[in-house]
Design a protein around this nucleic acid. Structure first.
Lengths: 209, 209
DNA sequence: GCTTGTGAAGACCTTCACAGCA
DNA sequence: TGCTGTGAAGGTCTTCACAAGC
């Protein structure tokens, strides 16, 4: 049975959780859909509808309890556990990702890094030793990571994604400038800063908007 | 007059251009919407409809001339010129962005970098010298950059965005984990790798999809 | 009185299917 | 024959508006 919760809704859940976290940190107990809408630059109706796909978390006349809703959302997204991640591609970008401190606090732990460049294999980046791509399947079998971050040149993206998928990984964060083809049941999100800028400049031309 | 070309279409244009560039590099002359659809994991109808918002670029019975369509799309997106970009936030992430080689070849040139941390001001990163945030307005007035990349902590995002907008910048690439509020006529794209991973894990839980 | 949860309506985007042209 | 361009149909997502409950 394929769920009929719109994917856009799933994409918004992390934003909801982030804002709720902020409210919780500031000690706020209760929040209305109106207030959430203001903070998210969304509408109250959108937020109520989105949340209603997963349950009834609010109280009429009051709103939502911040800590309760946050816990529910984290549960729904599967964030009440740690996730293991491998990184493929330890070039400039890959190194930056490895030393970036933003993933671990959210429960995403990079447990292995791979590169096809023999001169990188064996070197240390952060707390990891770069492994040869050929070892990927074996390492995945051992550590059972659930996610992969792909940070290779565009021309290498598809073959790396194929390899990672063959190893059994079902979730991929792709930094390569290429839309990879994946089988049913594998999830890819693309990070494309250049494309993002290019879609802005459209509106900045004279007559843009 | 607010254009009625759907924003999703604008977001796809960079992908189209990227694929066309690949085809051009491989020396292909002509491409059908069918072929483009295969390469983009989209449908022929979608591609024809998207392109039809901007003009009639194809020939019945033949398809689209690769170089011609690519040039048209680059024109439409405003890529047939150079764009100047400033960077705000020269922490780990900001440094990585400055040394990342992916922007310049696409015509996006980082011309200045700012940070509020006095111990960073005056230091060199790549070919730039970090400036104090207070100099931002003046530097923008001089160099007239059109775009800003924001790479500051979440709590600083809104005030940095406000500052950048006040300086007259109309396009922002935001790496901070915060949805900034901007006035009409200013365009923001968020880069959110953690959120992307969080929206994948939803589907990886047992019963996910 | 205030705010949620939700069917129904509406807006928006995608897909269909075919006329028209190379 | 092959493929585009496009109205019309279909589907999906958002917004409305109100009954129900605190």
């Amino acid at each position: 049975m394929t769920s009929n919760i719109p994917e856009v809704v799933i994409l918004r859940l992390p934003l909801y959780a982030r804002v709720l976290r902020g409210l919780a940190d500031r000690g706020e107990d209760v929040v209305s859909s109106q207030r959430l809408g203001d903070l998210l630059h969304s509408t109250p109706a959108q937020i109520r509808k989105d949340l209603s796909y997963f349950g009834r978390f609010g109280k009429q006349g009051r709103g939502y309890r911040v800590d309760h809703l946050l816990r529910e959302l984290r549960q729904i997204m599967g964030l009440e556990r740690q996730w293991s991640v491998i990184l493929v591609g330890v070039g400039q970008l890959g190194k930056a990702i490895l030393t970036y401190g933003g993933f671990a606090p959210q429960g995403f732990h990079v447990v292995a890094a791979f590169d096809s460049d023999q001169s990188l294999v064996g070197t240390s980046v952060g707390s990891l030793t770069v492994q040869a791509s050929g070892e990927l399947a074996e390492t995945v079998k051992q550590h059972q990571p659930q996610l992969a971050i792909v940070a290779v040149p565009g021309h290498a993206c598809q073959s790396v994604v194929d390899m990672v998928v063959r190893a059994g990984i079902k979730g991929i964060l792709n930094y390569a400038p290429h839309q990879a083809q994946v089988p049913e049941g594998v999830w890819v999100r693309d990070i494309d800063p250049v494309g993002a800028l290019q879609s802005i400049t459209y509106y900045l031309k004279p007559n843009g908007s």
